[in-house]
């Protein structure tokens, strides 16, 4: 047996859909040590991040967040999913924890003159997209 994920009622449909998609497109158990999405590059061994030639300084938690998002690029990631997977939280905090952290990460990843890669999906969550 074994379930990969579960949701307790009450849940939003968008949450359910996002989780099902996440399960369907589960990242292949890759031995990749360098993740790449568009111009974004994450070295899991060196613990460094680059966008093009620009080096991005990341805090450990931000690194983990970006890693999780890059493994699931082009997928909708809900706040609850991020809390569980990145912060190991099994509850929803009252404050906008995810938004704040995401805001900081976005600030670092998407420079002022660059095309945004992290997109906010209103009322649902976030998506990391390669710049086309």
């Amino acid at each position: 047996m074994g379930g990969d994920d579960y949701l307790t009622k009450p849940f939003a449909v968008v949450e359910l859909v996002a989780r099902i998609e996440a399960l369907l497109r589960r990242p292949a158990e890759s031995r990749e040590t360098v993740l790449r999405v568009g111009p974004l590059e994450l070295d899991l061994i060196e613990r460094t991040a680059k966008r093009g030639d620009r080096v991005i300084e990341l805090l450990p938690r931000e690194f983990r967040l970006l890693e999780y998002m890059m493994q699931r690029s082009d997928q909708l990631l809900t706040r609850a999913m991020l809390l569980e997977e990145v912060w190991n939280y099994k509850f929803v905090p009252a404050t906008n924890l995810v938004d704040v952290h995401m805001g900081r990460l976005r600030h670092k990843v998407d420079g002022p003159d660059e095309a945004p890669m992290i997109h906010n999906v209103r009322g649902a969550g976030f998506i990391l997209r390669a710049v086309s």
Binding site: P93, A94, T95
Partner: peptide, 17 residues
Amino acid sequence: RDLLIEAVANLVDNAIK
């Protein structure tokens, strides 16, 4: 551990709020 983090996080959450 999970529950204790939740408890402390709630307190900190409240405090900041």
